[in-house]
Design a protein around this nucleic acid. Structure first.
Lengths: 195, 195
DNA sequence: TTGATAAACGGAGGCACCCTCCGTATAACA
DNA sequence: TGTTATACGGAGGGTGCCTCCGTTTATCAA
């Protein structure tokens, strides 16, 4: 006893896989607009599936949130890869930061509201955090190697600056302001005299 | 026109005043347990009044929250006055910090969740913040004057440390840990050699 | 003291959200 | 093409938000 019999299981149903994807896309949109506290029923509505289907795929809000978050980190990494092949390495970094602001819009309230709430030893968040840091490190290494930016600022510093600037994300029209501040910051990173 | 006729208004009803007090007491308890997002119906239930009465006295959650917050700041100031008359000035500061942790428990999630959300130019929060800072400044001035603690740490620094340490307030059993950390911090403030 | 009345009370009601449960529909397999 | 494991949808019960209004009551004048 205790040995569960294992029957050759069927392959997952096609509609199930489709709905999962629809839910993830919808969750990205809805969390983007309303933050991680947004209504799950709104997610289901947006996805065009029943609320029961949402809960079957993602038993808790956290489960859904994590998948969305992991997806965003994937995109950030991919974006870093893409821009890093661009001409000017500093421009690549700048573009990446701008894209990251777009992601913070998606993760509205996420960093402040969830990261501290979750046990920081949580392997999931540790992993995604380090992946993000790695992406920034690669971007910066190129710019430093080319001598375009100073070498005494770490990827963590840049991310911290990014997060800090995004702290105003609750005020209306924050995004253009933050983008401008980031441009100033990037200018500050550049080596050589001004004017 | 436009001149509202002023009739000698009656004096406020006694039950109204009573209920307001009951609501404030209840709000303090309920916010203490559940943070500023706690159920207003729970507040009304705890106060033993109808939900309509709550909304009549405090038309918005913010209105209720502010009154509770102002009350807490009053207490912090009063406490600073009380402990400052105590024997050892460093001990006075330490006691005040411990009491402040109790207040953060009441204001669960308040600093992180509300302070940045509210426009920081908001006169209400500016005023309460400066009152709190003033209280700490007075406590520290005494300790500095007596030569017991270093003089290169500002009241704002101390408050920042307090807030930072309280960032773990979501984890179970955070309070004893924070109190211990604060004691260590206060020891760090002391002048003179160790051991 | 007693009535009139302004003021306050309480909670029902309409809406949204959370999550569970289960009858129905359907994709996978034989 | 039939069987059946799997997934679907949404009703339903609970909670909270806030408004509205019929009822109660404290105040004040006679």
């Amino acid at each position: 006893m205790g040995q569960a019999e294992q029957k050759t299981s069927r392959k997952p149903r096609a509609d199930s896989l489709r709905n999962r994807e629809k839910l993830l896309r919808a969750a990205r949109d809805v969390f983007s607009a309303g933050g991680p506290e947004a209504s799950l029923e709104a997610v289901a509505r947006t996805a065009g599936v029943g609320i029961g289907t949402l809960y079957r795929h993602f038993p808790t809000r956290e489960a859904l949130f994590r998948d969305v978050y992991a997806h965003e980190v994937d995109e950030l990494e991919a974006l870093a890869g893409a821009t890093s092949s661009a001409a000017d390495p500093v421009e690549a970094l700048r573009l990446w930061l701008h894209a990251a602001v777009g992601m913070v819009a998606t993760k509205k309230g996420m960093l402040a509201a969830l990261a501290p709430a979750v046990d920081s030893t949580d392997p999931f968040f540790a992993e995604t955090t380090s992946r993000t840091r790695g992406a920034v490190e690669r971007l910066m290494a190129r710019a430093v190697a080319s001598g375009a930016i100073r070498d005494d600022v770490s990827a963590e510093d840049v991310i911290r600056a990014l997060i800090g600037m995004c702290y105003t994300r609750d005020q209306p029209g924050w995004q253009p302001t933050v983008l401008r501040l980031l441009d100033v910051f990037v200018d500050g990173l550049r080596t050589g005299p001004k004017g």
